[in-house]
Amino acid sequence: MLGSVIQFTVDALSLGSLYALMALGLVMIYGILRLVNFAYGELIMVAGYTLYLLDGTALPWLVMATVAVIMAILTGLATELVAFRPVRAKSVTAVLITSFAFSTLLQNAALLFISPRARLVPLPDIFTQTMEIAGVIIPLRNLLTIVCSILLLVLFAVILKRTVLGIALRAAASHFTMARMLGVPANLVISIAFAISGLLAGVVALFWFGRIGSVVPGIGLEPLLVAFIATVIGGMRSLLGAVVGGFLLAFVDISLNYLLPQNLLQFRDAFTFSMVILLLLFRPQGLVAGPATGQRT
């Protein structure tokens, strides 16, 4: 009994912390621009292919991982420059289309220059090791995921609370024009938001590939969907909401994994999404309300 409780907790927390980081990356940008970055999932794809391309070099895995995260950050910044900056002040619809276009462009580049077929991603030995707690076997990878995610969340909270740039980011998320009138440069804040978003996606990618082991061009769809649903549950405009939504979504997914009979398990997402619909019927703004102002600017 104790064993299954531990197993369930570790499963839910490790998946939840990944979902939370993903959702946070999406809300970072939505909070400031009121726009969803539909090329977000491709940041994970880019990190995956970076790892794949570095495989076989003599570099230690941690160096490869760092390069992969940096590539995700650069891709995030490129998304802003190519898909958002030229049209963001003009039309919401335009940004919707440009961010989809950029996502398609990246996916097709992967199809064309690498392969439509799955490619193995190099992983460190520690990702395949396990440990035994109270009679159950727990993958070390899951514990690492939890520890790294919590460290990242704490770091993130400290930056937002203690640094002037962090305060500026929160202010911009609440009232962008007013923040600009105090001298906070719009482009700087937006670039930082995209860089943070890329950092989060890059770190998530390492553990995401730790679970599935290989990368395909369409890999980004599921993380994007997960992040989007988690933010809808938690509240589109609240950073705390994104984290809450991420953990809750993972908790529901893992619970269904444990509870559903084998022949219904393939319909797990249908159950999850039904619950999301129910939740939204009663709390359309999500669980956590965002900052108390908010016009799109």
């Binding site: 305060i167 609440s174 009232h175 923040a179 900052p291």
Partner: peptide, 14 residues
């Protein structure tokens, strides 16, 4: 337009 979720001190710092 105060930033309602920021503290008074944070508003001033900004």
């Amino acid at each position: 337009d105060v930033f309602p979720d920021l503290t008074v001190a944070e508003n001033l710092r900004l």
